[in-house]
Amino acid sequence: MRRSPIRLLPVKTLVYALLLVWALLTILPLYWVFSTAFKSPEEARGYPPTLIPHSFSFRNLVQVFDDPQTHKSLGFKPYLNSLIIALGTALLTATVSFLAGFGFARYRFRGREVLLLSLLFINMLPEMAKMIPLFRMFILYHLYDTYLGLILLLAAGSAPFSTWLMRGYIKSIPQDLEDSAVIDGCTRGQASRRITAPLAAPGLAAVAVLAFRAAWNEFSAALILTTSDSVRPYTTAIFKYVKEHASVDWHLLSAASFVSIIPIVIAFAFFQRYFVGGLTRGAVKD
């Protein structure tokens, strides 16, 4: 059934050309930001835009972290805040969804099916629509402008999908392993921690990375539910920075963007195989 190489050659060229076109379209705007991050302020502002920075330096990347009180910059604090919020969210989401996934996969309790379907439903409730009641609630219960409030909210956002994903993963792990651990004297709880959790590690990694990304990139909840520099993540700090300065300093904004994208891209490239596998296993029918 193999076609001759001569007929395949133009097809191959076309296929790779199409893949390359989308790759270039993806890269082009980002490339501009990334290269601007290394340009001098004059070059970043200048016309025509330069493809490769003439004045290549790491100065902007350092300046981003300068003290915002004395310099025009973002400071280190917003990134630290984002990191705390994103790690907290990833940890809480992984814990809650592992437990719930385990419960749904291993126990047949009343109302289980309805609850599982409700999770799909809850997953589709729009975040923005919930913001007004959340705003009032957060002020009332002192969760407004706290790490804890944001972490709880963002974990609640990631949890329904993550639970489905974990449940699928745990179902694919044979129960016999836990049963024999119980015969050997473990309690059920110990068996789930010592036997099932390590085997579900790829699923947990997928859940944690997805929750981390969602929290690292979160904007609207941070905009509405935080107000002080001690909690505000980098996303709304960038927004505030642009709003407060009449003219946008593209070299600095680009450097701030560059700093924010690098960790998440590395995390994704590293975990990609877990997470594409995990997505397809949990998202659609098994």
Partner: peptide, 28 residues
């Protein structure tokens, strides 16, 4: 399996239900 009581399942999903009840269902 052995020693698996269905009611225990609720304990495992309880944290999820509390989280979603307060921060998703209630605001909606």
């Amino acid at each position: 399996g052995i020693g698996r009581r269905p009611m225990v399942g609720y304990l495992y999903i309880l944290p999820l239900l509390v989280l979603l009840g307060l921060l998703s269902v209630y605001p909606a």
